[in-house]
């Protein structure tokens, strides 16, 4: 087998994409714009990675995402369980939760800027707003999905509500919650970036906004590349831990 044959396809395709970018930025219709070349952008990215500001911004973005994510779970799981236990509560809250679930956090940024300013807390608030409704609905669906025969059996044996939750409701909700967590973890990072880019909250989003408005095209592209790498790492990390936790389910 030749050396070329042993290079993994993803490296080949990434290199081809970078080469395409390099050519497109040098000749052709969009080369007249201020688009930086691939080489310049990657070089700037490497320089950025040598600066502590970048790592501080990265830390702030991850912290906003992580704290918002944790708070969302703390609110949504108990709320979802409570709602899921009662049919009346479930149908009553369905419209409100569905309504806020589909409204993207970016919509309310102007109000959060007014109320909280371009701060860390504002970012956390946006993450919670973006995650909590979907997570609560997802949990409630899972709780409602519990095996009715199992529940009847437990009631027949006069098992209390705590036992029912512990051994019937939660196990059935677990896979629903797992799906919610997987989607929310990536969403949290996205919202944390948006909070910086649009709302001015600290982190990589704000660095990106400052680069773009400052006319630093190389740095703008470099930060976007960094966000892509971060996104890939997070989604692969989630996939990896999912396989560890739910090891009996392949794919």
């Amino acid at each position: 087998m030749s050396i070329a044959g042993r290079i993994p396809p993803w490296i080949v395709s990434m290199l081809l994409a970078l080469a395409f970018w390099q050519v497109a930025a040098s000749v052709g219709p969009i080369s007249d714009s201020s688009i930086p070349t691939a080489v310049d952008s990657v070089t700037t990215l490497v320089q950025l990675l040598g600066q502590s500001e970048t790592w501080i911004a990265l830390g702030q973005t991850v912290a906003i995402a992580a704290i918002g994510f944790a708070l969302s779970l703390l609110i949504a799981l108990p709320l979802g369980i409570l709602i899921g236990l009662s049919r009346f509560a479930f149908t009553s809250t369905k419209f409100v939760f569905d309504f806020f679930k589909v409204i993207p956090p970016i919509v309310i940024i102007p109000i959060t800027i007014l109320a909280l300013g371009p701060t860390f807390q504002m970012g956390v608030f946006l993450v919670v707003f973006g995650l909590v409704f979907a997570l609560a609905i997802q949990t409630a669906y899972g709780v409602r999905d519990a095996d009715p025969v199992l529940l009847d059996t437990m009631r027949a044996y006069r098992q209390g509500i705590v036992t029912q939750i512990r051994y019937a409701r939660l196990p059935s909700a677990a896979s629903f919650i797992a799906v919610g967590i997987r989607i929310s973890a990536t969403a949290a990072l996205v919202i944390a970036v948006v909070a910086g880019l649009i709302g001015g909250a600290p982190g990589l989003g704000r660095q990106l906004l400052l680069s773009q408005t400052g006319g630093l095209a190389d740095q703008t592209f470099a930060i976007v590349l960094l966000l892509g790498v971060l996104g890939v790492l997070v989604s692969h990390g989630i996939e990896w831990s999912r396989r560890k936790v739910i090891f009996w389910e392949d794919r």
């Binding site: 990434m14 688009i35 930086p36 970016i106 996205v190 880019l197 989003g205 773009q212 892509g228 997070v234």
Partner: peptide, 21 residues
């Protein structure tokens, strides 16, 4: 792999790239 990378960039964060171009 390229698609995987590009879609991992938060959609809103690609807007500055299009502003540059």
């Amino acid at each position: 792999p390229v698609v995987d990378f590009l879609r991992s960039i938060p959609a809103v964060a690609t807007v500055p790239v299009f502003i540059v171009i």
